[in-house]
């Protein structure tokens, strides 16, 4: 519709006829999910080798800011995505869970690299065999370490999940996982998160 033929007064005076552009319709849920998927703010949760690749992904060559992802937040309170980049040790596990609990809903987790996803090659006393035992994971990125391209793919997969998924997912109860160490003499059950 050309400028000349448009009725004067915009939406209020002329109704829908008054609009020529900047016009979208959709369900509220779709719009919220669309907005969410384009402003995911990751927390800097670098642990090991993968953290270097995560930083490289934010660097000039791979340029993560193309996806609206470059603002890595130092405080978990300001972040809604935790990229667990590296192996999670038994000593780090409670810390990781505490940081996850501090993040605001809605929140997502990417498990970056095989160590975070399954313990990788370090199946021993020190490493938690998969971070999904501590926090719920949305996307697993394979590789040791995953190249920045793999991380980007994981992030885009997550964006897709956010757009396609439910709007409200975890109604305020965290993951509700209780972890207990078995077989270790004298150990007490460790309850992580909320019961």
């Amino acid at each position: 519709m050309s400028r000349e033929s448009r009725p004067e007064g915009g939406l209020l005076d002329a109704g829908l006829e008054g609009l020529s552009h900047n016009f979208l319709t959709g369900t509220l849920e779709e719009l919220v999910k669309w907005a969410r998927s384009h402003s995911v703010m990751p927390a800097t949760f670098g642990l090991a080798c993968c953290a270097i690749e995560m930083m490289a992904a934010g660097g000039p060559h791979y340029d993560l800011s193309r996806y609206g992802m470059e603002t890595f937040r130092a405080s978990p309170r300001q972040a809604d995505l935790m990229i667990v980049a590296g192996r999670v040790s038994q000593k780090m596990a409670p810390v990781l869970r505490q940081i996850y609990d501090q993040m605001m809903e809605p929140k997502w987790v990417i498990s970056m690299g095989v160590c975070a996803s399954s313990g990788g090659m370090f199946n021993n006393y020190a490493i938690v065999q998969g971070v999904d035992q501590i926090v719920p994971v949305d996307v697993y990125a394979p590789g040791c370490p995953p190249s920045p391209e793999t991380l980007m793919h994981a992030i885009l997969t997550l964006h897709q999940q956010i757009r396609d998924g439910e709007l409200t997912r975890r109604p305020g109860h965290g993951a509700g996982i209780v972890i207990e160490q078995v077989g270790a003499p004298g150990s007490t059950p460790v309850a992580l998160g909320r019961n």
Binding site: Y125, I177, I179, V182, A184
Partner: peptide, 16 residues
Amino acid sequence: DPGRIPVQFKGAPANR
């Protein structure tokens, strides 16, 4: 024992 320490899940609700 060099192997992993077994970890058990308890009461993890299916929330996804």
